[in-house]
Amino acid sequence: MRSVAVAGASGYAGGELLRLLLGHPELEVGAVCAASQAGSLLGAVHPHLMPLAERRLEAADPALLARHDVVALALPHGASAPLAAQLPDHVVVVDCGADFRLEDPAAWEAFYDTPHAGAWAYGLPELPLEAGSGRGRDALAGATRVAVPGCYPTATTLALAPGFAAGLLEPDDVVVVAASGTSGAGKGLKPHLLGAEVMGGMSPYGVGGVHRHTPEIEQNLSRVAGAAVTVSFTPTLAPMPRGILATCTARAVPSATADEVRAAWESCYAAEEFVHVLAPGRWPRTADVLGSNQVQVQVALDERTRRVVAVAAIDNLTKGTAGAAVQAINLALGLPEGLGLPTVGVAP
């Protein structure tokens, strides 16, 4: 058994990571750490984690974290880099925040208010790379520093990547509108996330190309396409606790046919355990991936406008964060990639 310490264990992402670790046959929960909640019993913060209810949250002391095989950082953006710098090289560190996702310092500085800390191995195993040069998982085997993708980039990248990998999409007119549940904004109290404000309505935010996940989506799709991809990304807030539904469109190359489009998506994900292209006529629903590490994808070619429409549904806390972290940990430690990860959702 390898021990995993979780820093930021009191938040939604940290709680989801603990849930998955409790069911993992090769990993055990080590220190559970938090900042403002340090000293509290975990059961008071996450009542659903009954096996850990009597564990006490501790401060995220680097010396404590360094005694573990793996450290998972479920911290606010900007908080991971200073802590990670104090951990020894042999410890596997998986960051669920944004600190190490972006390769371009200029892109980081345009969207974040802290210095660029560098880029780690990017934790999206299913990402097809340019010209058939492998998948994202190739960089994760044996890695000791991994950046977990953002939840929106996971859904949008996996929705569109097959088309760019097959050369069926134009890179300069990609439009994404994605809806997320409220847990994507974290556990901190915010007036606009109160039940009375959210229930019964949807609202956009981060409009006009300012959402911080935009450069990450562009980075991913550019790696697949082998050329710069530009994305117009608009997120929306949906009245549900968890889940993302990403509707993504891009112009098809003039020669693309509907059959070629479908074949590209099916062949791209045929061997993937967690990404499923649905049968024709079925469209992804967030309810069908709730609590699972699955990605449901559907694609169609709009013949009239010559745009490909790709839709993906994920659980933002599982495949969108904690499940991706466990996938990365498995690969880093040489374990089967899907070990300990749920492949079925919860219904109704």
Rank of each mutant, 00 (worst) to 15 (best):
D172W: 02
V4F: 12
A196E: 02
A66K: 06
P51W: 06
A38V: 14
S232P: 04
R262H: 13
Y269A: 00
H213N: 10
T182A: 06
L22F: 06
V71R: 00
T156W: 01
T257H: 07
T157F: 02
A119H: 13
A143I: 13
G8R: 00
A106W: 09
H276Q: 02
C151Q: 15
V229S: 05
V277N: 00
P241W: 07
V6Y: 01
L64E: 01
A271F: 05
G338Y: 08
Y152N: 09
P254V: 08
K319H: 11
S222F: 11
S292P: 11
V297N: 01
R304W: 11
R262S: 10
V93W: 07
L22H: 05
A60W: 01
L102Q: 11
L18E: 08
L333T: 15
A166V: 10
A166P: 11
T247I: 14
L83P: 00
E273W: 05
R137K: 07
G281Y: 02
A79D: 07
L41Q: 13
A263R: 10
V71E: 03
P348V: 03
G15F: 06
G43V: 15
G30R: 00
A121P: 13
P125K: 00
A166H: 07
M50F: 12
V344A: 06
A246W: 07
M202H: 10
V210P: 01
P47K: 12
E266C: 10
R135W: 05
A63C: 07
L65H: 08
V32Y: 05
L194V: 08
L57Q: 00
A228G: 05
G209D: 07
P125D: 04
G134L: 03
A7V: 14
A81E: 08
H90V: 02
